[in-house]
Design a protein around this nucleic acid. Structure first.
Lengths: 141, 141
DNA sequence: TATTATTGATTGTACATACAAATTAAATTT
DNA sequence: AAATTTAATTTGTATGTACAATCAATAATA
């Protein structure tokens, strides 16, 4: 084993990616009691709160590509959490009973994720970091 | 189209992932003149600078899983940029001439990535954000 | 009204990444 | 020295994400 210091951590691509992988892992764990991985959980929460929302709007809310959202909806529909109804060229996505019954658990898991990282990073630093990431994202997008 | 404000941007998982996807896209563009995507480029730079380095140490430097590093090396070896030599239970990774000839271009692309995001975020903010991401990563890991 | 352009959504395909299991080799213990 | 444990790496498999191309429906224009 050699020294593990490296000169790459001064690169935003490098640091931001590492952080994202780490927090994703944490989110996976936090959401695992719901049987959902984080992206699916977020999508479900959004649809539960906005029944009839269109895929394109979900994509905007989630900051994901429409094609990605299609894939997520595909799987959730197949598992019986969502239903699509075609309306001209647009699509409306509706939650099923199964999905709405899961809502509380989803929100709970989301909160548990929050508590986990706040316990490690501190409330103030978490808030600051989250904001900076989001602001930077907006500027770069 | 509905309002695109959302309540999720206060979540670190959400913001950090969004940022990572964005900066990754930027990195893809910056490295594209080298014919490499960023991960491969970083790996190559590391091997060029540390000929004979072991996969496990690359994983540490890159903050990636050993299995991921194996996959990256596989492809780079197949394309003739690297060579593996088995040494007991360890493996040594050597750059080929082809890889070393690419080094300048890789470094150049890396710098161009830096300039790109600094142009948008500013030097000071970039530095701060990068540090905060890295610090948070270390704490969460 | 017929043609063209735009928009929303989906599909084919590809990539980066990881986990868990398997393999191999070295180190430790008995 | 044989048996067991540990360590380094690789494989099988799965996931999340995106790009480019396509399809379908509406809007704009000639």
């Amino acid at each position: 084993m050699e020294e593990n210091k490296n000169k790459y951590c001064g690169c935003l691509y490098y640091s931001a990616s590492a952080l994202a992988r780490q927090i994703t892992k944490m989110a996976d764990e936090a959401f695992s009691p719901t049987g959902m991985s984080p992206s699916y959980a977020f999508l479900l929460m959004i649809v539960n709160e906005h029944p009839g929302i269109q895929p394109g709007d979900i994509a905007i809310k989630m900051q994901l590509t429409p094609s990605t959202v299609t894939r997520l909806i595909d799987k959730l529909e197949h598992k019986g959490f969502l239903e699509r109804t075609a309306e001209g060229r647009t699509t409306r996505v509706q939650p099923t009973k199964k999905s709405m019954e899961l809502q509380d658990k989803l929100v709970e898991a989301w909160q548990s994720l929050y508590h986990r990282y706040v316990a490690i990073l501190g409330e103030e630093d978490s808030r600051k970091l989250t904001n900076m990431c989001y602001e930077a994202y907006l500027k770069l997008a």
